[in-house]
């Protein structure tokens, strides 16, 4: 039997992780091998010594302090979470409000600048509405400016009535509307639908 393998098994045996078969093999080997017997004895001694190293006992006051510090941290984390949640909800309102106003602006534009078309059954779709705005605007910068100003005015009006006093960043970059992903459009659409229902 290889002594290197036995040394590894001796370590497993101390941790109670050795199978019976291997334990029997170790015992048979130790009877014949003085070097492994000596190694096994020193491992046992190290293990006994290590498990008898006494840990520092901390006072009950330490645990009381630990618990109250943790509780204070937990409470403040919960408060932070609530504030963040409120903030996210406010932003959701700004976004959905802005999108709703965008649709209103589109409606106004189509009403004022379009020639009467045969009426079709209206199926609400923000994505289609935005697409038709851009199609209508095309390369007409005047029209684009008009649309943007209606949009910004509407949002500003909404913001004045809401608790949200700061102008959202995206107003500085109206092209952001073009970069909306399908998921974002879907989200806005669902928010607007909820608003329309209520």
């Amino acid at each position: 039997m290889n002594c290197t393998k036995i040394e590894k098994w001796l370590s497993d045996r101390i941790d109670g992780e050795l199978s019976e078969r291997k334990t029997r093999a170790i015992e048979a080997h130790l009877e014949k091998c003085a070097s492994c017997r000596s190694y096994a004895a020193s491992l046992e001694k190290i293990h006994d010594e290590a498990t008898s190293l006494e840990r520092v006992e901390v006072s009950p006051a330490f645990w009381e302090g630990f618990a109250s510090r943790l509780k204070a941290n937990l409470e403040s984390s919960r408060e932070e979470r609530r504030e963040k949640r409120a903030l996210v909800l406010s932003w959701n309102w700004v976004w959905s409000g802005a999108a709703l106003l965008a649709v209103v602006a589109v409606g106004l534009y189509l009403l004022l600048f379009q020639s009467p078309q045969p009426q079709e059954m209206y199926v609400f779709s923000l994505e289609n509405s935005l697409a038709s705005i851009y199609q209508e605007i095309g390369d007409d910068s005047e029209l684009e400016e008009l649309f943007n100003s209606i949009l910004v005015e509407s949002i500003d009006e909404y913001l004045e009535d809401s608790e949200w006093k700061e102008r959202p960043d995206f107003l500085e970059n109206l092209l952001l509307w073009e970069g909306l992903t399908e998921e974002e459009i879907e989200f806005l659409e669902s928010e607007i639908k909820k608003d329309i229902k209520s």
């Binding site: 040394e7 590894k8 370590s11 497993d12 101390i14 941790d15 992780e17 190694y39 020193s42 491992l43 001694k45 190290i46």
Partner: peptide, 19 residues
């Protein structure tokens, strides 16, 4: 398991004079 074996080997080598 391997780390325990290696750790014990290192401890044993270092503590030999005191064992």
């Amino acid at each position: 398991s391997w780390r325990m074996h290696k750790a014990r080997k290192m401890l044993q080598a270092r503590l030999k004079p005191y064992l």
